[in-house]
Design a protein around this nucleic acid. Structure first.
Length: 992
DNA sequence: CGCTCCACCATTTTT
DNA sequence: TGGTGGAGCG
């Protein structure tokens, strides 16, 4: 072991690089050996200090460039650091390691891959790729609870997130298993504790999955981002020689944003510095805002315990903000005491303003969020016109990406350029969806949904009437749209029903099929990228048109298409053979796995108002900052746990007191406030488009020392806003001609679809756009048919054996939409089990009175029709029964579903309409492999009235031709039309 | 004061 | 579709 160098550098050394530094900064820069904690408040020159310190170590010959290791979190921060150091060191320092933690891990793991038994060209998977990996191995994994057959992918992302969190905390599969076993032991001691037993079962399952996941990944030479940290740690721990070489090599270790490090990263730093102890960490506990991704604030709070001999430098001279802004920040953050370094360690962290006093911090409230946004946009206009600051030096900071929308609209109205960092959603751009539909068609010409989309798109522009006619015909005849278009174009007159097609429509279809034919041939021979390129640039030349356009909007579309080409290229790099037929399923999996690449930057991003989330604003500064949407429940937000939380017992970051979540939100607010140099506005509204009245965020009061807000008059919706909301859509494809007198034929599904989303109704019931049936629907249908057959037999006084029942189920089985053969088989087994259970259950009961009873009744001029699965009339009691193939936890939940079922309410109404008597009860029979679970409920006049209202509402809308989409994340997430739906597509600008 | 039901509203981000 | 928190009831 080499001996530790002693601190022999005189105080004058390195004076060259210290010009312009204050005393504290100088102390940090010129600190000799041993651990150093730099507590750097916002705007106190944190990056300057690290850069100068690195330069100082090199220039003073304390260390050679290659002996310095500086670790950051983001590529951006690493690049900035490198640039700054470059300016300070007179000669090249290419050997200095300035990189992110992950890049560091990646590099040394590749260097030492063989020691660890890794392939040196291991591949690091993105999140979406991880999900695909798990999907492919889903049935190689020991899953039960976490792989519901109705939706096997349900927990995949949550599991991956959990594994990632486990790696943050340096928990190996073995460590997880030990924890799960311990829980199991506890259940032995408390056999009556059902909750504990359930928990133990799940944790054991997770531990198994975690272990298998790691094994499978290793076998295929794949790592995830978390592995870059944990495997590095393993390398350092289990290979003393490697560790020793590292310690000798990196004589000085510096860590930026130390409050963001997770437990595993701290362990790496500790190991690297274990012998020489030359570790400098720079951070600010008050700016720790990444707990959700593993940041362990105790790393910085407890640094002095880990390194008792450490020196501490506190940077408090703030060169950024006015005194008023710093006052507000300080008042606010003190509410996090006592869980702050300042309080715990007794240091004074209060920022000392170096700037002159500026305008006061303004807090403004509005009635509606539109007014709030308009005011912000107006104020920005003022600032820009008064030359107080250019647009690019102004920021609107929001808590969530979705809060940005009204502000972007308001900025649009005033023609102020903006750049929104949350602009994800490449796949939702219309130009991307079009090329995706094109590729899908090449992979499967029978994909009528894609053909429908492409034919009606701006590329081909087939007249809507023609397209609808062809589509409806195809549906009626159970043929694909492709086949129908072939007939219509190749054999004119062969389809008498379609003789009304316009010549224009036929010409368009001919062109489209011609192109398809050409590209279908190419697609088998040439790589994906080339086929796509020709489609865009040659025939029909959609891309060429965009490239030649002068509109900035089209330029952005071109940028998006270029980004998409990048994805195609990445596929080409990994695919054994790069063809469209392989690319399409890969892309489908990527999209389903939730990959969501950002869209191309707009033109004027250079000098545009920056709209950002607070998290993204960290490390930035602006002349003027608007903190918007400052109301309780938004900011501070409500605490939401991870889908599968990492057990508390396994988390190392433990703090003595306080409301963790609230403290973190407060730090986020603190980060926001301290971004501002001169102008700071705190805005909010009382109405954010929901029923409730939103209250002022407590943080506003804390920052400005305001008294408790007294309640003014209760809020009322501005009448014009209410009218605007209720008004029909101005125009566009969502509206069809109103047919005021047409009687409608409705069903439960039609009503439900319309009320879920009118545009969905239009797709399903008017345009009849074909979609692939979900496997859950196919499963349910087969189950229903079998039960129906059984009930019919019983009705006739006959019997049906369990085996016959299962045979009927298998006869109706359709292999559709399963993610693998194993999935299909498991699902078949589940169905057989459910039916065996049903058989036992039903054999013990009386036969039904009616099976598949048809009903029909009138509401106004409209007819409602449908079938009742089963009706039992016995001893003067009437029960309406509906069978469900979905899962249900217990009787209680089944009862709840029955109570809330709109379908059963409609059925009860139908029954009363036909026999003038209410059914005594309605029942849902859930057919689960564990047994039949029955939920019972009453449907009284109140529920029937509600059902009638729903029928009327749907009928009115349909009659009026109103088919405007009502998009919302959770409805669209299940909708089969989301890939072609214009309501979720971005065609370009946002409109007001 | 505690429980249950019902209405309401659906993060944050890096590698 | 699911968790949360407020309101209302016992």
């Amino acid at each position: 072991m080499m001996s530790e160098p002693t601190d022999t550098v005189s105080s004058g050394a390195g004076a060259m690089v210290q010009e312009g530094l204050n005393a504290a900064q100088q102390a940090a820069v010129t600190h000799g050996d041993g651990p150093l904690l730099v507590i750097a408040g916002a705007g106190t020159g944190k990056t300057t200090v690290i850069a100068h310190r690195i330069a100082h170590l090199i220039n003073s010959k304390r260390a050679r460039p290659e002996q310095v290791l500086a670790l950051t979190f983001t590529e951006k921060a690493a690049a900035e650091m490198e640039r700054r150091v470059d300016l300070l060191v007179p000669y090249g320092f290419t050997d200095t390691w300035i990189s992110t933690f992950h890049a560091f891990g990646d590099r040394i793991l590749r260097e030492h891959a063989l020691v660890l038994g890794l392939s040196p060209d291991f591949r690091v998977l993105t999140e979406a790729e991880q999900a695909i990996f798990l999907q492919e191995h889903l049935f190689d994994l020991p899953l039960d609870y976490f792989r519901p057959l109705g939706n096997p992918m349900k927990h995949v992302r949550a599991l991956l997130q959990l594994f990632s969190r486990a790696k943050d905390e340096d928990i190996s599969p073995r460590g997880y298993a030990a924890f799960a076993e311990q829980l199991e032991q506890q259940t032995l001691a408390a056999p009556d504790d059902d909750v504990l037993a359930e928990r133990a079962r799940r944790e054991v399952e997770i531990a198994w999955i975690y272990r298998r996941y790691q094994e499978l990944m290793a076998r295929e030479g794949k790592l995830d981002f978390g592995d870059l940290m944990t495997k590095t740690l393993t390398l350092l721990r289990e290979h003393p020689l490697v560790l020793q070489r590292m310690q000798e090599r990196f004589r000085y270790v510096l860590v930026d944003e130390f409050q963001d490090t997770n437990y595993a990263q701290l362990q790496i730093v500790k190991l690297l510095a274990a012998t020489h102890r030359n570790v400098t960490v720079v951070g600010d506990d008050d700016q720790s805002i990444f707990k959700f991704r593993g940041a362990s604030i105790s790393n910085i709070l407890n640094f002095r315990e880990e390194f008792p001999e450490s020196h501490t430098v506190v940077l408090v001279e703030n060169y950024r903000s006015t005194p008023a802004i710093l006052d507000a920040a300080y008042r606010l953050i003190q509410h996090n005491n006592p869980d702050r370094l300042e309080y715990r360690e007794g240091v004074d962290k209060r920022l000392r303003p170096q700037n002159a006093e500026g305008p006061v911090v303004e807090s403004v409230a509005f009635q509606t969020y539109q007014e709030e946004a308009d005011w912000v946009a107006g104020k920005i206009e003022e600032l820009v016109e008064a030359k107080a600051c250019p647009p690019g030096d102004i920021a609107i900071l929001v808590r969530r990406n979705s809060d940005a929308d009204p502000f972007l609209r308001a900025l649009n109205m005033k023609g102020i350029p903006w750049s929104f960092s949350g602009a994800k959603g490449l796949y939702d751009r219309e130009e991307i969806r079009l090329v995706v539909s094109f590729l899908r068609l090449l992979a499967d010409p029978q994909d009528s949904l894609s053909l429908f989309h492409l034919a009606g798109s701006e590329i081909y522009g087939m007249p809507g009437v023609d397209l609808t006619l062809c589509n409806a015909y195809a549906r009626r005849k159970h043929r694909s749209l492709y086949e129908v278009l072939l007939d219509v174009t190749k054999r004119p007159g062969s389809v008498p029903e379609l003789s009304a097609l316009s010549p224009e429509g036929i010409a368009t279809a001919t062109a489209l099929l011609g192109d398809l034919d050409r590209y279908l041939r190419k697609a088998t021979l040439e790589p994906t990228g080339r086929v796509l390129y020709e489609f865009l640039m040659e025939r029909p030349g959609y891309g060429k048109r965009l490239v030649r356009s002068t509109s900035p909007r089209d330029h952005q579309r071109v940028g998006n298409l270029a980004a998409f080409f990048g994805l195609v290229q990445r596929f080409g790099e990994v695919a054994p053979q790069d063809r469209v037929a392989g690319f399409v399923p890969y892309l489908t999996m990527l999209i389903e796995a939730g990959e969501d690449p950002p869209i191309a930057e707009g033109e004027e991003a250079g000098d545009a108002v920056q709209v950002l989330t607070l998290h993204k604003a960290k490390g930035l500064e602006f002349e003027a900052v608007f903190l918007a949407g400052l109301v309780e429940k938004r900011f501070p937000s409500v605490d939401r746990k991870d889908a599968i939380p990492l057990p508390d017992e396994l988390i190392k970051d433990h703090l003595p007191s306080g409301d963790f979540h609230l403290q973190e939100e407060r730090r986020l607010f603190y980060v926001g406030v301290t971004r501002a140099r001169r102008h700071l506005f705190l805005t909010r509204a009382r109405d954010y488009g929901t029923k409730r009245e939103w209250k002022r965020s407590r943080f506003v009061a804390e920052a400005l020392a305001l008294p408790k807000e007294h309640e003014e008059h209760p809020w009322r919706a501005a009448p014009d806003a209410a009218i605007a909301r209720a008004a029909p859509p101005p125009e566009g494809e969502a509206a069809l001609p109103a047919q005021p007198d047409a009687p409608l034929n409705l069903s439960h599904y039609k009503i439900d679809d319309y009320l879920t989303c009118p545009l969905k109704y239009k797709y399903v019931h008017i345009l009849r756009v074909p979609v692939l049936r979900d496997q859950a629907v196919a499963y349910g249908a087969a189950l229903h048919r079998a039960v129906q057959a059984y009930n019919n037999r019983r009705l006739q006084g006959l019997t049906m054996s369990s085996q016959e029942l299962i045979d009927a189920f298998e006869a109706h089985w359709v292999n559709e939409g399963f993610i693998s053969r194993e999935h299909e088989e498991a699902r078949l087994r589940e169905g057989r089990d459910a039916l065996a259970q049903f058989h036992a259950f039903a054999e013990g009961g009386e036969p039904p009175t009616f099976v598949e009873k048809k009903f029909r009744f009138q509401i106004g001029q409209d007819t409602v029709t449908g079938f009742l699965d089963r009706v039992d009339e016995r001893d003067g009691e009437v029960a309406i029964i509906d069978y469900k193939s979905s899962m249900v936890r217990d009787q209680k939940e089944a009862g709840k579903e029955a109570r809330e079922s709109q379908q059963l309410a409609l059925y009860a109404l139908a029954y009363r309409e036909s026999v003038s008597r209410l059914p005594d009860r309605v029942e849902l029979h859930f057919l689960t492999p564990g047994g039949v679970v029955v939920g019972r409920a009453l449907k009284a006049e109140k529920e029937l009235d509600r059902a009638t209202d729903r029928i009327r509402a749907a009928a009115t809308g349909i009659r009026a031709g109103l088919f405007q989409a009502t998009p919302s994340p959770w409805v669209c997430g299940f909708c089969a039309f989301r890939t072609i739906c214009p309501a979720t597509a971005w065609t370009g600008e946002r409109e007001g």
